[in-house]
Amino acid sequence: MNQAFVLGAGIGERLRPLTEQLPKPLVPVFHRPLITYAFDHLIAAGVSRLVVNTHHIPEAYARTFPQQSYRDVPIQFRNESPVRLETAGGIANVRDLLGNDSFLVYNGDILTDLPLKQLITEHRENGNLVTLALRSHGPSLHIAFDQRSCRITDIRNKLGTGDDGKYLFTGIYACDPAIHDWITPGKVESVIPIFLNMIREGAKIGGVVIDEGSWWDLGSRTAYLAAHAALNGRYGPALDPAAKIDDGAILRGTNVIGADAVIESGAQLEDTIVWPGGRVVRGAVLKRCIVRSGVTAAGIVEDADF
């Protein structure tokens, strides 16, 4: 499976004010855009062509990927304007770009290293219309899955099976091009009602449980901070070599400080993230804060964003 549709149109309401400056998939994680981790993951699994939908601050994608490529892999962007089409509508909107080949769909606000080969193999060998990558643990266990048939049987008991679900949907799934027959072009719609209709009509929608690796949904500031703390050192140094941290600055806990950020002498940081180009002035005391690019942080502040 050599192509993927990465969902980049998210507004990121739970991450405001961070997403007033960038689309959610472009917020920096260990000094680089979150979506690039998805790209790396997909490329390692054999993907050689990327399609990304955009909506909120689409020009930020043009600035981040001016050549419309990443690691020599081409990226085709499709803006949804004036209305964001949600997941199913987004898939329908890029049908011409995906053509008649199978493809992976990957949420642009997750950070994971689960082995994608298992998903691709399950999809190919069982001839599913759609195959979901699942986990048996996590924050939202809403997928009902029959391990004997490897079929999805319900979601949140919406079909009245009596099963509220015991598995997490990772936001990654493999699709046969026939999925387009189930989606109405131009309609604003989540993919979940589409999946439920498929199950109801007897279409083959499968799943595979992949508990290896880590999985993070970075849609909230709590998860964003927690992922940085848990993954510190895995994705490179927490302190970018190009950051300017004056003598006399005090750093406690896990702090992630980006390139060209300035931490003045006398500033105190604890479990705080400073994006590239952010500044923390002398006398500031920040705990569990996030400082955006080009923003100056001051004062004694806890659990707030700049």
Rank of each mutant, 00 (worst) to 15 (best):
G202T: 03
L7G: 02
R156Y: 09
L22D: 08
P177R: 05
G207A: 03
L168H: 03
E201M: 01
K166F: 08
D305I: 15
T161F: 00
R49P: 08
K158C: 13
T19P: 07
P115G: 06
T131F: 05
P23L: 02
E13L: 10
L286R: 09
D101V: 05
F169I: 00
E80A: 14
I183W: 05
E189C: 12
P58M: 01
L7N: 10
L15N: 08
R148H: 05
P25H: 10
N79D: 14
R288P: 06
K204R: 12
V83H: 14
F195Q: 03
Q147P: 02
Q21E: 11
W215M: 09
G108E: 05
G108T: 03
R151M: 12
Y167H: 08
A223C: 11
L18H: 06
L26H: 01
R63P: 00
E264K: 15
N126L: 06
G294A: 07
F65R: 08
G186F: 08
A259L: 00
G8T: 00
L129P: 00
P82T: 09
Y235Q: 02
L18Q: 07
E59A: 10
I91L: 14
D163H: 14
R288M: 11
G213A: 07
P58I: 02
T36V: 13
E270F: 08
L231V: 04
R148L: 01
L231G: 07
P25N: 11
A92C: 09
L251Y: 04
Y167I: 00
D109E: 09
G46M: 07
R14E: 13
E20C: 03
Q67F: 14
A4R: 07
V291D: 07
Q3C: 08
E270H: 11
V291P: 02
L119P: 08
C289A: 13
A144I: 06
V73A: 10
L15A: 06
L26T: 03
H31C: 08
W182C: 10
Y70K: 08
V280L: 12
G186D: 03
H31V: 04
I91S: 07
T64A: 10
A223Q: 15
G207V: 06
V130T: 05
G258E: 01
A284G: 11
W216E: 11
R252Q: 12
G233K: 02
R14D: 12
L22S: 09
Q118M: 15
V51E: 08
E189P: 01
G171E: 02
D181F: 05
L98R: 05
G206C: 05
D247V: 14
L97G: 02
P237A: 13
